[in-house]
Design a protein around this nucleic acid. Structure first.
Lengths: 221, 221
DNA sequence: CACGAACCTGAACTCTTTCTGAAAATCCGG
DNA sequence: CCGGATTTTCAGAAAGAGTTCAGGTTCGTG
């Protein structure tokens, strides 16, 4: 669940990042408008958090550039307290939600989850595939036989990726991109290691290997 | 699915090549403009990737020469980050798409597939012939009776070639060219071996032999 | 009809990718 | 700083894909 955070204030950015990472996101930070435009266009994020006050340009311009190229991930904008004009302009420019500083990180996370769900056309915070149901709030997996397993952060993110599009083949490279940001790049064997753990939970047949192509979550019950 | 990669930076070229090959292309690399012009004119590629910064000439000149002779395969150009002038000039010179460095290989692959589809006038990433349907994303073959078979890389490339033009006779040499690049040249029996494997999937009568000429995928249901 | 060339077939071999279990490193709260 | 949980690495085993080979079969032609 990759996320782009565009925030000038480095202290705030780092604090947010560590909390967002705990909540299961992998976060890329940038401090400038210029870099933000490029990253947004070239990397595969699931959402963006955009501070409007940037040193080298207006955040709204960044958003407009994204939307005029084909950047479609949902964007939440941060503005100074109660600046209604910004809010209106932001939504006009293609933002999905709005949060005034100062704010509680919990609220930011909740709103991010909301706009991501909305952008995927879902309402419920749960992904259901066959006998399995993934609870995004509680970060746990329920199986039809009544058992329930709580997942570690990485297990959860990987499983959410696979279950989010059952039947679709994800290459190891794609999965790496979803789990890690630009700075981290562990051994690719890490995917194999986690696939193995997930298979112990869901059964080996549920996650199929397509040799040379990647892995997929089996659609059929 | 042969591809020409014109890229000065040898390290980048090799990295790209290995990923492109995983994605089902067979790639020829060249590092110079001069060689690029010749290869483009003489070999039968399905697409080209052209870096604009070459040591012995401008990439755009390569593209112009190709277009002024009768090289029609789609070309994607690579430029330094955000160099908008290059983009405009490239599209003027006959490029089909444009990608700024640095980029994700996945995006390159997606764009390549897109321009190749466009150049063939297709929209769907699926090839349907008679009772058979080849899914290019999932690299699998669906048959009307409901069965589905996932294909290995080589099986897929060969079948795509045959099904891409049902009723047309492909010589073994042509098929070799589609499956392998100039550096690889395995025993020609390899085609026979793979034809046999494919026949086990689709039925012997579906792929016909024209002794001394080649093979064809039977159009008739 | 006989012969050679082209093609078919099954199995063996090699090389790469994936699996697997365990150990090492890292993170985090107390 | 310690101990448990989690993440990451490693190396050998297993499985799978790609390739080759040797012998059999079919086809076309002289």
């Amino acid at each position: 669940m990759r996320l782009l955070l565009v925030e000038d204030d480095r202290l705030l950015a780092e604090g947010l990042t560590s909390q967002l990472e705990k909540a299961g996101f992998s976060v890329d930070i940038t401090h400038t408008a210029k870099e933000a435009v490029v990253l947004g266009e070239q990397e595969d994020y699931k959402a963006g958090v955009l501070d409007l006050g940037l040193p080298d340009g207006n955040g709204l311009d960044v958003l407009r550039k994204w939307r005029s190229s084909k950047v479609t991930f949902p964007v939440l904008i941060l503005t100074a307290r109660g600046d209604w004009q910004d809010k209106v302009n932001g939504l006009k420019a293609g933002a999905d939600d709005y949060l005034a500083k100062p704010f509680q990180t919990e609220e930011l996370i909740a709103r991010l989850n909301a706009i991501m769900r909305r952008s995927e056309g879902r309402v419920h915070s749960t992904v259901k595939v066959g006998r399995f149901e993934l609870d995004e709030n509680r970060q746990c997996l329920q199986i039809e036989d009544g058992t329930e397993h709580s997942l570690t952060g990485t297990e959860f993110r990987l499983l959410r990726c696979l279950m989010g599009r059952p039947g679709h083949i994800f290459s190891k490279e794609q999965l790496m991109e979803q789990l890690y940001n630009l700075n981290e790049s562990p051994n690719e064997n890490i995917i194999e290691a986690y696939i193995r753990r997930l298979r112990k939970l869901v059964g080996a047949e549920t996650i199929a290997t397509r040799r040379g192509q990647g892995y997929l979550f089996n659609d059929s019950v």
